[in-house]
């Protein structure tokens, strides 16, 4: 990758969006997000000094997604092992995240043993984990009861909730229930009403982090990669200075910045999916075994107090 350092270094020594995107494309494991002054930035992009600053004056949290425990097809016969590797990388981090978020598709088929295995591997790392469900987590015989029994405590409706950490307001949304024929992801009127109410007490200067499984922006509607009523949710977030939207579902990194909102999707820990339109379907993409770990990963986010932006760092399982 070639780039012009002068062009890529933005105001205050920050890293330009373009350089950040290039890094994310090439970095290939998870995404570690730091929130600096409100805009999440993924950590591998920060450099040592900035990362240290993030840790000393703010906090980091980590996003994992689409672990698909139970998946054993050609694209990755050992999805359970790659989740273990991802958790091992998180545990080995020198700057420990304050907590984890999991943006859904914890399991492949919502089976009890799959939920149990995921809980053992993810829970075994000893972090607080905030979950939202993916569509694969709601296909038990009880249409989602298995998920709610495990992760629904303290949540509303199908499992949505909010919480605050170090001055940042986090909102976990569910856009994988009551899907309509011909439609995309769906939040629904009840959840939107709850969101409007939840935001009432939040000041406009509070950084907001929204996380949900399916992207809240139209990544590629032809493959169902979007959410029908996301615009209504985003309208409610318009008045806030910094909004970061973290999603999964598409098993690859995509980023878009629109006004006050930064959208970012994380890699899967289980298997990659093709770029939009690059294959006959969005199904699991089988790559040579020695390339798989370069396409799986985690995302780290650093929150730096007093800074406008969160720092988002994606890293792959292949990264040292």
């Amino acid at each position: 990758m070639t780039h012009d350092d002068n062009e890529d270094i933005g105001k205050g020594g920050g890293i330009s969006r373009r350089y950040a995107l290039e890094c994310m494309i090439w970095a290939g494991t998870g995404v570690l997000w730091t929130i600096s002054g409100g805009v999440p930035t993924s950590l591998s992009l920060l450099g040592e000094a900035q990362a240290a600053e993030a840790v000393s004056t703010g906090f980091t949290f980590l996003q994992i997604s689409d672990s698909h425990i139970g998946f054993d097809k050609a694209a990755n016969p050992h999805a359970i092992d790659t989740l273990k590797e991802a958790m091992g990388k998180i545990q080995a981090m020198s700057a420990k995240p304050s907590f984890l978020i999991h943006t859904g598709d914890i399991t492949h088929l919502s089976k009890a043993a799959q939920f149990d295995n995921a809980a053992q591997i993810i829970g075994g790392a000893g972090f607080d984990v905030h979950y939202v469900p993916g569509e694969h987590d709601l296909i038990d015989d009880g249409n989602g009861q298995a998920y709610l029994d495990r992760y629904g405590k303290g949540t509303k409706g199908a499992g949505w909730y909010s919480f605050d950490q170090n001055g940042v307001h986090f909102i976990g949304l569910v856009n994988v229930v009551n899907l309509k024929a011909g439609g995309l992801g769906n939040l629904g009127a009840e959840q939107l009403a709850w969101l409007a109410d939840d935001l009432k007490a939040i000041s406009a200067s509070t950084p907001i982090v929204v996380f949900a499984h399916i992207p809240l922006w139209a990544v590629y509607p032809e493959w169902g990669w979007g959410t029908d009523d996301a615009a209504q949710a985003l309208a409610l977030l318009k008045g806030f200075g910094s909004v970061t939207v973290l999603n999964g579902h598409i098993h690859q990194i995509m980023q878009k910045v629109e006004g006050n909102v930064t959208f970012h999707t994380a890699r899967s820990t289980a298997f990659p999916q093709p770029a939009p339109g690059a294959a006959a379907s969005p199904g699991p993409m089988t790559v040579p075994a020695d390339q798989l770990r370069g396409l799986l990963g985690i995302t780290s986010v650093a929150v730096r107090q007093g800074k406008e932006e969160l720092a988002i760092i994606d890293s792959t399982l292949a990264d040292a």
């Binding site: 569509e135 899907l179 995309l184 493959w223 169902g224």
Partner: peptide, 12 residues
């Protein structure tokens, strides 16, 4: 009888 995929509703 129109039908769709409950997980991927763009499939009809």
């Amino acid at each position: 009888f129109a039908y769709f995929c409950g997980l991927h509703p763009h499939m009809q």
